[in-house]
Design a protein around this nucleic acid. Structure first.
Lengths: 349, 349
DNA sequence: TTGAAAGCGCTACCAT
DNA sequence: ATGGTAGCGCTTTCAA
């Protein structure tokens, strides 16, 4: 085997005996500065550093105290999925800004039970941020039964604080704008409107519940605006994608722009989808915005860095993350929150 | 206080007594299927589910077994920084693809000791992936002393497996290409070439060590190519940034393009920097690539989605993440690896 | 300010 | 196939 240094294992006990003090004193030096003189405390800390004892074993500590100092961030699906979603990234960045500063650790957790079999991961955190409606209800149930603080983000969870953005308002503003500035048919490129989205037209029967799905809230806003404008959007002008990727966006946009009569505006439920649609328009030789308006959602950096800059609905993803972290650390200081969204009219509409 | 269900606390012990079996049997049901009949095992598992016992307490388990089933991903600096770097994101996505499938949890850890004071976070993982050279050597030291498997990524760590990409080769190809296709001065927009990069010209004295810094490897390749082409790049044509952000890129590019004689090519050490430079060129009315060639590094999605598409050096970030995860799970099956890079000539050169 | 000791929940050894 | 049980490293109470 690998040659390990034959050093004795370091524990409070062995350290205490090396330093000639009691285990309680060593423990207090690390955990309760007020329980001993600062002279002694510093001496102990220095000595520990010197001999290579870097503080109490976390497992033992948390077994003893019953808490871990970890905030769980429960994401939808696999972690990998979230790392490819700019909004999730910004949200996580915001969360980590606050948690880093509070010296609290964040544990990213996939939203599917099958990942938990081995480790009971879900019982590690002391508090939870749940980002997006989990697909796995039994797992959610298990977490709720632990009676730890929970913040739900982008959906509502009974008896817990929630943090949402104004999806309806933002989408309504986008749709109103499009109905004012174009005169032809308007199509929708949706995102996870139903469980089996695949880049095809939607099927009215199996859409998600609007109380649970931000996409449905956005769709409802589009639809309401279309009624008010007296230019109803038929279901044959609504497409659905399962994720906000370039490929899915291209596929859906190609379909949507092949319909006759061709839409003169595309309401896309994310910037990635809008960007993909833009590229399809270019490849089809359509002039944007003269022949085709394209509107996104989220206002990710890519939207404004692009040329032409994409008209979209801003949502404060970073601030959302920061707020979620603050809320989960101090739930008693907060009520549920709905953050505003804002239409950003730029060059694609 | 909140009204909690007055349920007795569930432990192996209480569960065992409820079910009328021994604690060992309950434990075995969860951990060692081969130690009992599958009939009994299933009965126990079902019953546990029913009464709400969701498996052994992880703290107690890991105190007992001495392992946690967690892989630590040690990142440079704060977590937040990494969430804004497309390469880091792709890398993490790759890591999580493998770790998710292996049902192993990943713990993202900031690379600065100050975040560890409270929790001794660094002793939780069983194995480590260290992504990029840590700024905090004492912390690294503490991790190494734990004698757990470590994979170093994008730098070398003595006595441990490392995973690198061919920075020199990729940068050399990029520079050769630029010297072949342009005839004026060539400038460099570097990334973290020295500790106190701030968007200004570099100061030859305090550059990082090439063995430790991928940027220095790239710079050396640029410089070697320039010598071979007999068109040396002076230090007054080399700029440095502290991070791969739009703002820093814009700042550095504005400086670099104001020099007289103006560069006819910009070798940028990331795609973000190249994209920012592109926007500065546009704002200055410079035609790309006729009057100015711009080359990036990394080949992130943004590079090829952009119009014009950015000439850059591809590095397999996703595959790098997947490999790092595989290596850390099975170090005995691997040697240190250098992944190839590849020049992608597109529209900005 | 210190020392002794109980016990957090679990696993794995040994015995049956 | 199952049961009894020591002890993982720690914190905290109590008494000195």
């Amino acid at each position: 085997m690998s040659p390990k240094p034959p050093k004795k294992k370091l524990t409070v006990k062995s350290v205490a005996s090396i330093l000639g003090v009691s285990t309680a004193t060593v423990s207090n030096a690390f955990n309760r500065p007020d329980q001993l003189s600062s002279v002694l405390r510093n001496k102990i800390l220095d000595e520990c550093e010197r001999i290579g004892y870097h503080g109490p074993n976390p497992a033992a500590r948390s077994l003893r105290t019953g808490s871990t100092g970890v905030v769980g961030i429960m994401l939808a699906e696999k972690l990998a999925y979230n790392f490819s979603d700019p909004c999730a990234i910004e949200f996580l960045e915001g969360v980590s800004q606050i948690l880093d500063d509070a010296r609290v650790n964040m544990l990213l957790m996939p939203g599917r039970e099958e990942f938990y079999k081995k480790t009971s991961l879900e019982s590690i955190p002391d508090r939870y941020i749940i980002y997006g409606p989990p697909k796995d209800l039994p797992l959610l149930d298990r977490i709720e039964r632990q009676h730890k603080p929970i913040i739900s983000v982008d959906f509502n969870l009974e008896n817990h604080l929630s943090l949402n953005i104004d999806n309806y308002g933002g989408a309504k503003a986008a749709a109103n704008h499009v109905f004012e500035t174009t005169s032809g048919p308007v199509a929708v490129i949706g995102l996870r409107l139903s469980k089996d989205a695949d880049g095809e037209r939607i099927n009215a029967t199996d859409l998600y519940d609007p109380n649970y799905s931000i996409s449905r809230q956005r769709l409802n806003a589009y639809l309401d605006a279309s009624k008010e404008a007296n230019r109803p959007i038929g279901f044959d002008y609504i497409w659905d994608t399962s994720k906000s990727s370039w490929d899915e966006g291209v596929k859906a946009a190609r379909c949507a722009l092949s319909v006759s009569p061709r839409p003169t505006a595309l309401l896309c439920m994310s910037d990635n989808l809008a960007l993909a649609a833009l590229s399809v328009a270019r490849e089809m030789g359509l002039h944007v915005p003269q022949e085709l308006s394209i509107v996104g959602f989220d206002d990710t950096p890519a939207a404004s860095v692009n040329h032409p800059e994409v008209t979209t609905v801003y949502q404060p993803s970073l601030e959302k993350g920061r707020l979620a972290a603050k809320m989960v650390l101090n739930p008693e200081n907060y009520d549920s929150i709905v953050l505003p969204t804002e239409l950003k009219i730029r060059e694609t509409s």
